[in-house]
């Protein structure tokens, strides 16, 4: 018994040390966002005086637009793509999960392959194509692809749908329910937890997406929060690190909030399909 409890203490000790090491940069970040610039090089967590002005000044530091504007941009874009992704992915997943049709296996294998395809291969021709459509500097290069479902999300939902007993939709079909009726009335309500997982991860990925906006958005009026942060970093000759760190910290609040509100969905989503956070 004694050995076991000593072991537990040791485990706790290692875990606490690990967590502290991992978490220290974040704690420091919180403190640093309130520090005067002169104290930013110190490892101490607490500022000598609290510079709340880092937040209020940082928020309006960029010319012409405040961060309010960029947050509205980001939310508008990300909520749109999130809703389109979840609707299209669930429709496609229902098709793969429940209906038998010719060449289904082939299409599904191709779907899985696209998950592993490096994005760089399609990046340039997609850009050339959207450029031709005059979609550059609009949100269409994000919105249109999201209406076509995400391969990873489709895979996750197919797995989930396959776990739902087939008797339910069988009997509904017998009663004359259409395929869409089965999808809408039976499968959709039952996949709710998985749909929430899809929405969360779709939002998170788009929220922090940097390469896409970097390539497609050139006017500041269209900028999302990540681009605004980058502009903040570049435009000031002597970077106001305190303000910059404060604004960066604010930008991850939606992600962290979402995580704490829906922790269960996170853990399930990651552990069942290997979704990356």
């Amino acid at each position: 018994m004694k050995a076991i409890s000593r072991n537990k203490w040791l485990t706790h000790f290692v875990l606490i040390a690990f967590s502290a090491l991992m978490f220290y940069p974040v704690l420091w970040w919180i403190g640093a966002s309130l520090k005067p610039n002169a104290e930013l090089s110190l490892p101490s967590l607490f500022p000598s005086r609290f510079m709340w002005s880092n937040y209020s000044d940082g928020w309006v530091a960029l010319p012409k637009y405040t961060f309010t504007y960029f947050y509205i941009n980001s939310f508008k874009l990300n909520i749109t793509t999130m809703l389109l992704t979840v609707i299209s992915s669930s429709l496609v997943a229902f098709g793969f999960g429940r209906i038998q049709f010719a060449f289904k296996k082939v299409w599904f294998s191709l779907l899985l392959l696209t998950i592993m395809l490096p994005a760089q291969v399609t990046l340039i021709p997609q850009y050339a194509m959207f450029h031709k459509f005059n979609w550059v500097n609009t949100y269409l290069p994000f919105i249109v692809p999201s209406a076509m479902g995400g391969a990873f999300f489709i895979f996750l939902l197919v797995q989930f749908i396959r776990g739902i007993p087939g008797e339910l939709d069988e009997s509904a079909k017998m009663d004359g329910c259409s395929w869409f009726g089965v999808y809408w009335r039976i499968i959709l309500p039952l996949t709710k937890p998985a749909l929430i997982t899809v929405m969360i991860f779709s939002f998170l990925w788009h929220w922090e997406d940097y390469l896409g906006p970097l390539i497609y958005l050139n006017s500041v009026s269209k900028f999302t929060v990540p681009l605004a942060l980058r502009m903040f970093m570049d435009t000031q000759s002597a970077v106001q690190w305190g303000q910059l760190l404060a604004m960066s910290l604010v930008s991850i609040v939606p992600q962290v909030l979402l995580f704490f509100l829906a922790q269960r969905h996170f853990v399930e989503g990651i552990s069942t399909t290997g979704l990356k956070g």
Partner: peptide
């Protein structure tokens, strides 16, 4: 009961369109 080419392709059509026009063709 579950074989239906039309329904199947209709349901997967968003992804299929994306695959053809945003992956394969590019």
């Amino acid at each position: 009961h579950s074989v239906s080419n039309v329904a199947g392709y209709l349901f997967i059509s968003p992804w299929l369109a994306g695959f053809l026009f945003l992956t394969l063709w590019p």
